[in-house]
C-alpha cells in the first residue's frame, strides 16, 4: 500500500482538481501545492469565489445560458437585437461568438447535438424553448451556429424542420477556409464546400 504523504483534505483537493479539464493527476498535484502555498492570496479567495458561484449560478430559463441571474445578462440587455437569435450547441460556443463580437444578437443554447451514439435525442435538447421563443412572433432571423459536423448539421436540419411553420428567416454559418488556413492542408470536403460557397471579389 502506498504511503500517504499529505492529509485527507489535501488529497481530496488533488482528486477534485484532477477532474478539471486540462488537469491530470500530476498537474492537479502541482496546482494543489501552488494553492496551498498561496493560501491567503489564492486558496481562500478561490474557495470563496467558488462558494459564491455555487450559490448563485443558474441556467437562464429563456436561452439556456449560464449566469448568476435568471433571465441572464444577455436576455435582459436592451441594447441587443432580440429579433435575431443565434443558436449554439453549448455555452462555450456562446462565449466564443461573444469574443468575436461580430453580432449584437440574442442567443439560444441547445445543450448539445442529436447524437444516437451518445443517446441524445430531440427531447434532451432545448429545442422546444427555441420554438416557443420564435412563436412569440418577435424573431426575424434564426442563425444556426452549430459545429460543422454530421451531428451538428443533423441538429441544424432538425431545428429548421421544427421552425418551418413560422415566418422567420433561418440561416447558418458558412463552411470554408479558416483564417490562416493553407489550402494544401485542408480536407477535400472543406475545400469543395468553400468553392461552392465562393463570393464575388
Amino acid at each position: 500500500m502506498a504511503k500517504r504523504i499529505t492529509g485527507p483534505e489535501i488529497e481530496k483537493l488533488i482528486q477534485l482538481l484532477a477532474k478539471v479539464p486540462g488537469l491530470g493527476p500530476r498537474s492537479a498535484r502541482r496546482a494543489a501545492l501552488h494553492l496551498v502555498k498561496k493560501k491567503d492570496q489564492l486558496l481562500g479567495p478561490l474557495g470563496k469565489a467558488m462558494g459564491e458561484a455555487y450559490d448563485k449560478v443558474r441556467i437562464c430559463s429563456c436561452c439556456g445560458n449560464i449566469d448568476t441571474a435568471d433571465p441572464c445578462a444577455i436576455c435582459t440587455d436592451e441594447r441587443r437585437d432580440h429579433g435575431v437569435i443565434i443558436v449554439v450547441e453549448d455555452v462555450s460556443d456562446l462565449w466564443a461568438l461573444e469574443r468575436a463580437g461580430a453580432m449584437n444578437a440574442a442567443y439560444h443554447v441547445l445543450g448539445g447535438t442529436l447524437s444516437p451514439l451518445d443517446g441524445v435525442g430531440p427531447d434532451d435538447l432545448n429545442v422546444k424553448g427555441l420554438v416557443s421563443r420564435v412563436a412569440e412572433g418577435r424573431v426575424r432571423e434564426v442563425i444556426i451556429a452549430v459545429n460543422a459536423t454530421v451531428e451538428g448539421q443533423t441538429t441544424a436540419h432538425y431545428i429548421t424542420d421544427q421552425l418551418s411553420g413560422f415566418e422567420v428567416k433561418i440561416t447558418r454559418l458558412a463552411h470554408g477556409v479558416p483564417v490562416g488556413g493553407e489550402l494544401d492542408y485542408l480536407d477535400e470536403g472543406t475545400l469543395s464546400a468553400a468553392l461552392r460557397a465562393r463570393t464575388a471579389f
Binding site: 454530421v150 448539421q153 443533423t154 436540419h157 429548421t160 480536407d187 477535400e188 470536403g189 469543395s192 464546400a193
Partner: peptide, 17 residues
Amino acid sequence: QRAARLMESAVALYGVQ
C-alpha cells in the same frame, strides 16, 4: 471524405445517421 457533401442535404444527414 464524403461528410462535407452529406452535410449539404437534410436527406443525406438523416440517412447516414
